[in-house]
């Protein structure tokens, strides 16, 4: 397992050896057992594997695990804070933004990146921001509403 890496995932430091070819998504799922991050395609298209690396949404199927050495990674498992749901998680539940749940982690990770850079996006901006995330269940209608819910919530914390 030629390459030693240290990655901080959801606030916890992990060290271990990986093959050069190991994708970050496989490292998260297979090495760390964080199976909330999903794999939906092999062409870097669907976005199911989206995580945050050093604060930015990235497709973890298109980053080598070795490239994450020294990075801070947040996955869906790290979205909630001390047991209280992140507003985006709340939004997806309140607005029925998920059905089968498979694309949901990636959707939420992309949406949080969007809201960080654009706290009050228009519907068009939300739809454009989801270009790299496929959902086959919801027709995106309620995903848009979920993100609007979170945007509102994040602007006026309870």
């Amino acid at each position: 397992m030629g390459n030693m890496i240290t990655v901080t995932v959801n606030g916890k430091e992990h060290s271990g050896g990986v093959e050069g070819r190991t994708l970050l998504v496989d490292y998260l799922r297979e090495h760390l057992g964080l199976t909330g991050t999903h794999i939906g395609c092999d062409t870097s298209s669907c976005g199911a594997c989206t995580i945050h690396m050093d604060g930015k949404a990235v497709k973890s199927c298109t980053v080598l695990a070795v490239q994450a050495d020294g990075s801070e990674v947040t996955t869906v498992e790290g979205l909630a804070n001390n047991g209280s749901l992140h507003p985006i998680q709340e939004g997806f539940k309140e607005e029925h933004g998920l059905q089968c749940g498979f694309c949901t982690p990636g959707m939420m990770m992309t949406a949080t990146d969007l809201l960080k850079n654009n706290p009050n996006p228009t519907e068009d901006e939300i739809r454009h921001a989801l270009e790299g995330n496929f959902c086959r269940c919801t027709g995106y209608h309620n995903i848009v509403k979920s993100i609007q819910y979170a945007a509102k919530k994040m602007q006026s914390p309870a």
Binding site: L34, T35, G36, T37, H38, T75, V76, E77, L79, A80, L85, Q89, F92, K93, E94, H96, L98, G101, F102, T104, P105, M108
Partner: peptide, 16 residues
């Protein structure tokens, strides 16, 4: 009624 199954999916605990 909000879905009871959502909690595991939005926290990454779905088991596929």
């Amino acid at each position: 009624v909000k879905r009871v199954e959502d909690k595991r999916f939005i926290t990454g605990q779905g088991k596929y």
